[in-house]
């Protein structure tokens, strides 16, 4: 983007116009997607002021009729109506997917930062941190969820204070699993970023009388966490996608609910394609949001020479 001052060629201008049209389309699709989700959620929480709880926001029959009237779209009218019928279930599942991802990501981050710092600056704790990350990164997430759910039967041991927050306590088991697993991956990204902070920064911190811990907290981490944002975004995206594995331990999130409908109706094509689009929308939203975050916390000169 450095050469932006050069006059554009016609082809470039055409490409730009096309790109901005694409962007508008993308924003419109995003607004529709999130608008639908939020309205569905609010409708459910408020006990159905717009449409009865469990009903789609627009009538499937109306959609089918409308599409059926257009010759080109008539062929897909029935499928479209079916998808509309699905929307309440999908919205409900997406809520859990979003919550599980969000809570696990934040909790994992809280664990990951000390893990990364221990790995770089600790002695004994560095080995402990290494052992933890290697173990968690060396085994499949699904196997870890199985250990927590089937092996340790943790769903029966959810503390009273947490129990009942979700319709099913097993949601907490999934959150625990994603937190522990995500912490290991996040720690790796953050460790890389911590290591890339110039050593002179700590020396300078120590020289004005900050302790080592204070130097790490006030000087190293503010820089390292900024460096970590792009790779951390990857982890965010991974977690959205892998939250689908919660379905395997009976958490009624997006994938689980869609899979159940598919098993009942055998309409695999429509359901799984819609499911894929749903996740794609969540993932694209996350990466766009993180791009914004990255830009908004950017500091002149910081990380500018890093190509990531």
């Amino acid at each position: 983007m450095a050469g932006a001052t050069r006059p554009q060629t016609v082809a470039e201008r055409a490409a730009d116009a096309e790109a901005s049209a694409g962007r508008i389309l993308l924003v419109a699709a995003g607004a529709l997607f999130w608008g639908w989700l939020v309205v569905s959620w609010v409708n459910r929480w408020l006990g159905g002021p717009l449409v009865p709880v469990g009903d789609p926001l627009v009538s499937p029959a109306a959609v089918e009729a409308a599409l059926g009237a257009v010759p080109v779209l008539a062929a897909v009218a029935a499928d479209a109506a079916f998808v509309i019928e699905l929307t309440p279930v999908l919205a409900q599942g997406t809520w859990l997917t979003v919550v599980i991802t969000g809570v696990s990501l934040v909790c994992g981050f809280v664990i990951a930062v000390p893990l990364a710092v221990a790995r770089v600056y600790g002695r004994f704790s560095a080995w402990l941190s290494l052992g933890y990350t290697e173990l968690l990164r060396g085994t499949p997430l699904l196997a870890q969820l199985f250990v927590l759910y089937y092996g340790l039967n943790l769903a029966s041991y959810v503390p009273g204070a947490l129990s009942g927050v979700f319709a099913r306590d097993v949601v907490w088991v999934a959150i625990l699993g994603f937190t522990l697993n995500g912490a290991a991956y996040q720690a790796e990204y953050i460790r890389g970023a911590v290591e890339s902070v110039d050593e002179g920064q700590i020396t300078a911190g120590r020289a004005i009388g900050l302790s080592k811990v204070e130097s790490i907290y006030h000087v190293v981490l503010p820089q390292a966490l900024r460096y970590a944002i792009p790779s951390w975004t990857n982890e965010f995206v991974y977690l959205i996608k892998y939250s689908s594995l919660a379905g395997f331990i009976t958490v009624p999130e997006l994938y689980y609910r869609a899979d159940q409908v598919a098993t009942d109706t055998f309409r695999y094509t429509a359901i799984f394609l819609v499911l894929g689009v749903m996740y794609l929308a969540l993932v694209l939203t996350a990466s766009k949001v993180m791009e914004r975050v990255d830009a908004s916390v950017a500091i002149p000169g910081l990380g500018a020479d890093r190509d990531r």
């Binding site: 379905g247 994938y255 899979d259 094509t269 799984f272 499911l275 894929g276 996740y279």
Partner: peptide, 19 residues
């Protein structure tokens, strides 16, 4: 690439198998 990287592997597998 965007589609394949943006979709959970379990959904991709189910699409391959059932769809």
């Amino acid at each position: 690439g965007v589609v394949l990287r943006g979709t959970p592997i379990v959904v991709i597998l189910l699409v391959m198998y059932f769809v």
